[in-house]
């Protein structure tokens, strides 16, 4: 998305960060150092064998394409949202490069 290749190490840090990726609020995964992971969404273990990089990327960018009632936010969407707090207005949850980093990391979870 950004033109640059994703970096799995940076991606792992984003996924585990509860203010950046927010992933572990809902998902669990291979993060032994992270306590209190979520049980709402599928376990991230093995996602790299279940989905291709393209499939993972699309699910982060706009998961509503597959399931309109999904609770997973669209990480690269800034339009059609209501009452967004001023500090987050017009901003996607993650930048294009951050999404590439996350995709590169998740693809390693075989």
């Amino acid at each position: 998305m950004s033109g640059a290749k994703g970096d799995p190490a940076r991606g792992r840090a984003i996924v585990a960060n509860r203010q950046a990726g927010l992933c572990l609020l809902c998902h669990s995964g291979p993060f032994p150092e992270e306590r209190f992971q979520g049980s709402i969404a599928p376990d991230l273990n093995g996602i790299g064998s279940r989905l291709s990089e393209g499939q993972i990327r699309l699910r982060i960018v706009d998961p509503g394409r597959f399931n309109p009632s999904t609770i997973m936010p669209a990480y690269f969407r800034t339009e059609g949202l209501a009452r967004v707090a001023p500090s987050f207005k017009e901003k996607p949850i993650l930048s294009a490069q951050q999404i590439e980093d996350v995709v590169a990391f998740l693809a390693t979870l075989k």
Partner: peptide
């Protein structure tokens, strides 16, 4: 609503009993 685009009902009706970050 919000950047995360969630309604109250999605979590508190649809997912009540599950764990959000533990």
């Amino acid at each position: 609503q919000g950047q995360l685009n969630l309604s109250c009902t999605q979590c508190h009706v649809g997912l009540a009993g599950n764990k959000l970050a533990g």
